[in-house]
Amino acid sequence: MGYEMGIAVLVSVLHTNELPEQDRFESWHEFTSRSVLPVTVRNTSRGDFQASLQIGDFGPVKVSRISTPGLETVRGERLVRRSDPESYQMYVQLDGETVLSQHGREALLSPGDLMIFDSSSPYHGVTLPAPGASSGTCLIAQFPYIRSPFPRNVVDRIAARRVTATSGIAAVAVHHLVGLAAHAAECTPRDANRLGGVTLDLLGAWLSHELEEFADASPDSQRRVMEVRMHDYVRQHLGDPGLSPQSIASAHGVSIRYLYKVFQEQGLTVAAYIRERRLERCRRDLADPDLRTRSVQAIASKWGFTDPAQFSRAFRRTFGMTPTDCRHHAVQKMTRGGHT
């Protein structure tokens, strides 16, 4: 069979050369749609379909390394309506070239380039191997919208925009993802949970940088830069119980009215945004086995919740389970993963 499961981190692998030739393309399509994102594909290469896919499960983040011959990928409106994981995909080109389009924009990615796109909007991609090569290779880091420090309508401003990742935080992010893909099978489930959190923080920092760079170049740059900085300020001060609309406005030298207007334009309230980000941090810590001796209330306090009853109600309303049940579920999942 062409499928393998790692005994440490959950690593799923498919090599089409281990399958009967007549089954290779369909098997790869089915496995990719089920494990990464439902798409329609067309083999644009000639001859045998030689491809591979490796997926490492790092808790909230999945990192996939994909090698294919010439391939056209389409995610249309019908597939979006039928199946949507509501997630972002950070796409890194390793070799060959890929043309990706979404939101009316098109990006040509060469080795060392990256971009971000989202699962809730149709997109179209064409992969082209380098001249003389049989395949092109990319990495995809996938994580839920809710784990992003920015609302979707903010992140969508930079979707399908090419970023050259040869220096700065983009280069750091790419090297990190390459390392995750290369060493996923060597990590324990406990490692995977920690690395997933680190990866989310790194991708959040990269998003902050790119959004601010893009805002600087836009016609209403001053407002957009301020907006990105406000979101980043919240992300960095979640543990402060005094974090409030007043403290955010004061830190940025703007009025409360202006602050509310910025968030309202994104369909958010300031309080709801702060609460959602805090709850996500709490859920992440509750799933961390190294923090299982720390009480639920200690974790809640670390992220700015001062009322235990209010925290418990908000957590259950958001995630459909109590904080204690969330911790038990994470332990059970990790135990099963460690004995796969």
Rank of each mutant, 00 (worst) to 15 (best):
123 Y>V: 05
117 F>Q: 03
14 L>S: 02
247 S>G: 04
254 V>H: 00
223 R>L: 08
236 Q>G: 08
140 I>S: 04
285 D>C: 07
240 D>I: 06
133 A>N: 09
207 L>C: 03
188 T>F: 01
323 P>G: 02
69 P>M: 03
59 G>I: 04
209 H>A: 15
32 T>E: 11
37 L>F: 10
120 S>D: 12
210 E>R: 13
213 E>Y: 09
121 S>M: 05
276 E>P: 02
281 R>V: 00
324 T>I: 12
240 D>A: 05
202 L>M: 13
258 Y>K: 14
303 W>M: 08
78 R>G: 11
317 R>W: 10
93 Q>H: 07
275 R>L: 10
113 D>A: 08
263 F>M: 08
271 A>E: 15
182 A>F: 07
317 R>D: 14
144 P>D: 11
206 W>E: 04
62 K>Q: 14
162 R>Q: 09
64 S>K: 01
289 P>Q: 06
337 G>T: 13
19 L>K: 06
170 A>R: 05
172 V>T: 14
335 T>E: 15
323 P>A: 09
256 I>P: 09
199 T>S: 11
44 T>F: 09
68 T>F: 01
273 Y>V: 11
27 S>V: 05
44 T>I: 08
81 R>N: 10
264 Q>D: 15
61 V>P: 00
131 P>A: 07
233 Y>A: 01
129 P>F: 06
287 A>P: 02
184 A>R: 03
225 V>Q: 09
236 Q>I: 11
4 E>N: 12
66 I>T: 03
340 T>A: 14
329 H>P: 01
122 P>F: 04
332 Q>C: 12
312 S>C: 10
67 S>A: 15
66 I>G: 02
215 A>D: 02
335 T>H: 13
197 G>H: 02
109 L>N: 00
323 P>L: 08
69 P>N: 05
280 E>T: 14
132 G>Q: 04
216 D>C: 15
22 Q>E: 15
32 T>M: 14
321 M>K: 11
210 E>G: 05
261 K>G: 09
96 G>V: 06
1 M>I: 10
71 L>V: 03
40 T>N: 14
1 M>L: 12
65 R>H: 09
182 A>C: 01
217 A>E: 13
330 A>E: 01
329 H>Y: 10
305 F>A: 04
230 M>H: 01
220 D>W: 00
127 T>Y: 10
302 K>N: 11
170 A>S: 13
74 V>L: 12
84 D>Q: 03
260 Y>L: 12
185 A>I: 09
169 I>N: 05
142 Q>T: 14
266 Q>L: 15
269 T>S: 12
178 V>S: 07
235 R>S: 13
123 Y>A: 08
309 A>E: 11
21 E>T: 09
255 S>F: 04
207 L>V: 01
20 P>W: 00
117 F>S: 07
275 R>N: 10
119 S>W: 03
46 R>S: 13
95 D>L: 06
98 T>V: 15
204 G>E: 02
172 V>I: 15
182 A>R: 15
150 F>S: 02
49 F>K: 02
196 G>W: 06
265 E>A: 13
212 E>C: 11
289 P>K: 01
227 E>C: 08
324 T>M: 14
195 L>K: 05
74 V>F: 09
46 R>I: 10
237 H>A: 01
314 A>G: 00
173 A>K: 00
204 G>R: 06
221 S>Y: 10
100 L>P: 01
92 V>K: 07
308 P>L: 00
